[in-house]
Design a protein around this nucleic acid. Structure first.
Lengths: 215, 215
DNA sequence: CAAAATTAATCAAACGATTGATTAGTGAAA
DNA sequence: TTTCACTAATCAATCGTTTGATTAATTTTG
């Protein structure tokens, strides 16, 4: 049936996404991917043409969900600039677990500048998120809610960089935090709220005029 | 001669560092490295034992000098905790940006969670630097110079994460900053001092009791 | 409807190429 | 002579991909 075929392709993409993110594009062999997915090796070429075609298919599938998620960010006029940014932070931290495999995959392959033009495509997708955040911060700057002399690009780097550091290098951050962050329960109940609280307090101390460190 | 041998090994390490950075650990073959370095393939195994040995040799060469630098700062009793941390930031920004292709190399390989043998060794070496920074922050916490309720692991994540984000994704950060950050002149004269200023003000606002945001 | 023809899905096996590593041997220096 | 730096040739293993054959499903035909 058609349905079964789609399910199977989807299953292969799920597995391939995980294996690629664990081992990298070169490190993940077609044999490993196919055996972990429980399909014959030739199926990868049959469905996706090549290893690179498989890799691209993973991205194609993700693009749409990214776009739709973004539409709900920053368009609410009833909130202050800071509240918007705070909501932004909560939103991204919340999505850490769901997409952490994919985020790692992106962040690794985007650094392979010599390899292919795919990185331009990745950049384009990610920049949509960045511009959304920047718009909010600029809004807070212009409205006088934030300090005049803040460095917006650097704030963005801190927002995404801090989160990326924690989820992309779990071996490091587990040692730093003192607990295995790959433990789902710990991540959900401890690390996520802790990261939200920290990020908001950190950026508020840097951005916002009023000094309200209580709560 | 002994001198010639050391020079040759150093030359191989220079070339290998560049090739690894461009192509990744898997993507860079021993044949590519040796031919680019102008030496016989077997020399790599002769000098460094294995491909992984070569990789780790690159690592050890870069990291050891910075480690001693950090330890010197940490053990200097004539400075306040904040001044120590500020000096750490300055040195870190100054140094890591010079070696940014090496930094990319590290960050790419460390995210491959399934390859324990290689990434564990990287983590072990990197953690020495992390602990050094943590010691300084803890000192500031215990001495009362910093707020009592700061989140030390998160501060570390911000320090390393912000810098990593800028360096590892130059296509992204160039768009965010509005200038090609791979331009050496811009990096040296604009971005480096800007990143230092930002990092210190950001962390000071979060960490230190006295609220001195003027200048 | 049933038989035949066609297509799609799947498989084991093997392809040539490339990988990291090793060997045996060379020649010069000590 | 023994040691050392070095090379060309070669190793087994693995890579991504292709193949020819087989089965399952669908369509066409009578």
């Amino acid at each position: 049936m058609d349905k079964d075929k789609i399910d199977k392709k989807d299953h292969i993409l799920d597995v391939a996404e995980r294996v690629f993110s664990d081992l990298g594009f070169d490190g993940a062999s077609t044999r490993t991917i196919s055996s972990e997915a429980g399909v014959n090796m030739a199926m990868l070429n049959y469905y996706f043409g090549s290893k690179e075609g498989l890799f691209l298919a993973i991205f194609e599938r993700k693009i749409s969900s990214f776009r739709t998620l973004l539409q709900n960010i920053g368009s609410d006029d009833s909130m202050s600039s800071w509240d918007k940014l705070a909501k932004c932070i909560d939103n991204y931290v919340e999505r850490i677990i769901v997409n952490n495999c994919f985020q790692k995959l992106i962040n690794r392959e985007i650094t392979m500048t010599k390899r292919w033009d795919l990185s331009d495509k990745i950049v384009e997708i990610l920049m949509v998120n960045v511009f959304e955040v920047r718009k909010i911060i600029e809004e807070g700057l212009n409205s006088g809610n934030f300090y005049k002399d803040i460095d917006i690009p650097m704030v963005i780097a801190t927002m995404f960089g801090t989160k990326n550091y924690i989820i992309n290098t779990p071996q490091m951050s587990s040692l730093i935090v003192g607990h295995d962050i790959r433990d789902e329960k710990f991540m959900e109940e401890v690390l996520k709220p802790r990261l939200k609280t920290y990020m908001k307090r950190l950026l508020k101390a840097y951005l916002v005029n009023e000094n309200d460190n209580s709560k």
